[in-house]
């Protein structure tokens, strides 16, 4: 028997917003950080690949400047 499909999806914290993804925008970046300090996957952020790449770059810049942790 097929396992029941996952019906509920947690709403994305960032998708659908025009807000610029920038390393200084910590309010947005903090939402895309797992409890361990990892960058949250596209599946969870709901971003397209371009925006997810912007997010990745912004995260890495913020980590370099000690604005975000490498490991929480």
């Amino acid at each position: 028997m097929k396992p029941a499909a996952r019906t509920t999806k947690k709403p994305s914290p960032v998708a659908g917003k025009d807000e610029a993804i920038d390393y200084k925008n910590l309010e947005l970046l903090a939402k895309c950080l797992s409890s361990q300090g990892q960058i949250v996957s596209r599946r969870r952020t709901g971003l397209n690949s371009q925006r997810q790449r912007e997010l990745k770059n912004a995260m890495k810049r913020a980590r370099h400047m000690a604005l975000l942790p490498f490991v929480a």
């Binding site: 200084k24 980590r63 400047m65 000690a66 604005l67 975000l68 942790p69 490498f70």
Partner: peptide, 20 residues
């Protein structure tokens, strides 16, 4: 830009000032 606690210590410092 800001003065804040750092995410990890750098050269023994735990806080720093950011200039933009």
């Amino acid at each position: 830009w800001d003065e804040r606690a750092l995410a990890y210590p750098i050269r023994g410092r735990r806080r720093g000032t950011y200039i933009l």
